[in-house]
Design a protein around this nucleic acid. Structure first.
Lengths: 126, 126
DNA sequence: CTGTATCCGATCTGATACTG
DNA sequence: CAGTATCAGATCGGATACAG
């Protein structure tokens, strides 16, 4: 999902919030999934790969780096051998969870009303 | 924003909801913006182009078609000459708005704490 | 274990031009 | 006005190989 982030070349009048910028933090493949998994507690890198099967190491790594830079997750290196790393949601990160829930609720409702992803794909194919 | 939609090849045990599928409806550039603008009432095609400046006609058209297929917006052709078309949110579509608000609220908070998009970009550039 | 570096194909978007 | 067709460039994610 590409949430397009508009380059603010022209100084726009203070729009509501430049929506797209405000949502950039869930952009990128699997970003929402990471937050979703982390809601249940801390996870290690390899555990995340198991929880989100089709994600490649590269993308997961990229996403975790971004989410950390955005202040949504924390990265903690455990002094073990071999090294292990634990990720968990920050306080702000946890605030995203309810919003995600709301989105999923709507998605579920759409699905039950004949607007599931497959249904939509069929319609668009016509 | 690319919300990756996983192909459900392997019959996964009934996961929470296949998160990604449930969020597909806001995927695609400008999709959230369209919903955001439409919250204030119906808009015509050309009006949307004005409200969301950098969007091209092609993408806007594509997005509107998708959102309609997903049951999020309604398309109404007005019997005028030249023809004009009105778009507005469906009842279900309106339910997305609060979720978007919640997301934006978090985004705004992150911004005020030094995690704006530009700050993040700077961190990642290092 | 936890990543990073490359290469590469798939996908998407914007610009332009054109139709009803 | 309201799109659609086509093309080119940019971006992104996956696979593989490799490093600390």
């Amino acid at each position: 999902m590409v949430l397009k982030v508009r380059k603010n070349k022209s100084p726009q009048p203070p729009k509501p919030c430049a929506l797209t910028h405000c949502m950039a933090f869930i952009s990128g493949a699997w970003a929402p999934n990471v937050i979703w998994v982390l809601r249940e507690g801390p996870r290690r890198f390899s555990e995340l790969r198991i929880d989100i099967p089709p994600v490649s190491a590269k993308v997961l790594s990229t996403r975790l780096t971004e989410l950390e830079a955005r202040g949504i997750i924390e990265r903690k290196v455990l002094p073990t051998s071999p090294p292990s790393v634990e990720y968990n949601l920050t306080e702000i990160g946890k605030e995203i969870v309810p919003a995600l829930d709301a989105l999923v609720a709507v998605g579920h409702k759409l699905k039950t009303q004949g607007h599931g992803v497959d249904d939509v794909a069929a319609k668009l194919a016509k």
